[in-house]
Nucleic acid binder design. Sequence first.
DNA 1: CGTATAAAATGACCATCAGTCATTCATTGC
DNA 2: GCAATGAATGACTGATGGTCATTTTATACG
Lengths: 224, 224
Amino acid sequence: MGIHERKEREKEQRREEILDAAQRVFFEKGLSTATMDEIAETAELSKGTLYLYYKSKEDLYLAVMMRGMEILLEMLAEVVRSNDSVPKMLIRLRDAYTAYFNNHRDYFRMMHFLQTPQFHTQVDDEMRRNCGTLNRRVWDLVNGILQRGIDEGILRNDLNPVEVGIILWSSATALMLRIDSERLIWKETFHIDLAKTLKLSNTLLFDAICTEEGRRALAAIANA
Amino acid sequence: MGIHERKEREKEQRREEILDAAQRVFFEKGLSTATMDEIAETAELSKGTLYLYYKSKEDLYLAVMMRGMEILLEMLAEVVRSNDSVPKMLIRLRDAYTAYFNNHRDYFRMMHFLQTPQFHTQVDDEMRRNCGTLNRRVWDLVNGILQRGIDEGILRNDLNPVEVGIILWSSATALMLRIDSERLIWKETFHIDLAKTLKLSNTLLFDAICTEEGRRALAAIANA
DNA sequence: CGTATAAAATGACCATCAGTCATTCATTGC
DNA sequence: GCAATGAATGACTGATGGTCATTTTATACG
């Protein structure tokens, strides 16, 4: 009697179909401008059905956002799996995040809605938990590499790897946000290429957190 | 016949009264949860009247936000007027921004709504222009100091002061946003005090952008 | 004064949209 | 077939941003 199982599968599929539709609409319109009616129409379902699968509009938004976080997590995990040297991995982590920013811009934007919660409705608890878990996995991954860097004498051992992670991640993200929304302004007003500024920021920070040995290793990679 | 002038004054006063009311409501509820009806009631005016003075809810929001930017600008200008040495001014700029973050948290939050535009309605052109002007004045101020730092041999002359400004500002802001919304999470999950992380981030970056002379000067101030 | 004119303020009203729920429709098990 | 289960529907509600015909207030003038 696999009927129950099939039903479960179909339900899961519906959830995904709704998510697909929501994604298309949110990517195009953003959270506030998108309407549940439009998502319903895109999904070829009635609005009521959406609410059988998701608690609220913001819940749906978070669900789409988590797809993006999973992609990012996978990209970072891929770097870790490579099992390169720590300096090489640092570079590759940076490149992976940059690639995510460039190739998954829509998801990237959604992720930074989290920074400004101010949710209008209550978000489903499970959704919030899952979100936290995913986030945590990304951080553990980054922290693991940084800890290894310290252990191997590549990174300064007077710094807390978690703090270093926050600093690297935050400043990269802040610059990406600026690139996303103000690239032209800076180009025109100050003749600044923010993409280069992002690189510079990374370089300065890498330099600051490395030991002498780490800096040599990074320089060697850069020259390769 | 000063009647016209008085009328103008009264009109300006109304605008301010409305702004006061909007500020109270926005501070308490945030943009999306605040309602024009509540602002009207707080201002002891009818909703229609609000629209005689401001084009839209978002327009009003921006107007409140600009009050906050003016406060920040004044705090920074005060530092510049002090005419201290460049290293001292860098420290004081950092402290001024930190003080702004700590003492004007509500305004700080509003400013970072700008980063995520996604405006729902069209914002009044003049409002947008004024916003841009204010923003520009803040940047010019910071850039001026950094340029002076380069001229005086305090800051590395191979770096563009505008780029340095963006990097310093962005990373400080990013950490502040995290402090504002995730302080407890980081405390509990990783035993990290994000306020210290903010300081560390600043220190690392100051170190990275300074010449040897600049670093000595900063160290001297820190030890004083 | 009292009336005409202009300006300011009002609040009923409209359109939009998130979210609900009584009803309808489809599938399954007998 | 036919009940029983549960998935799907869409008309409806309430909230809310924004509008505008009307009313109120202030001023000017005879």
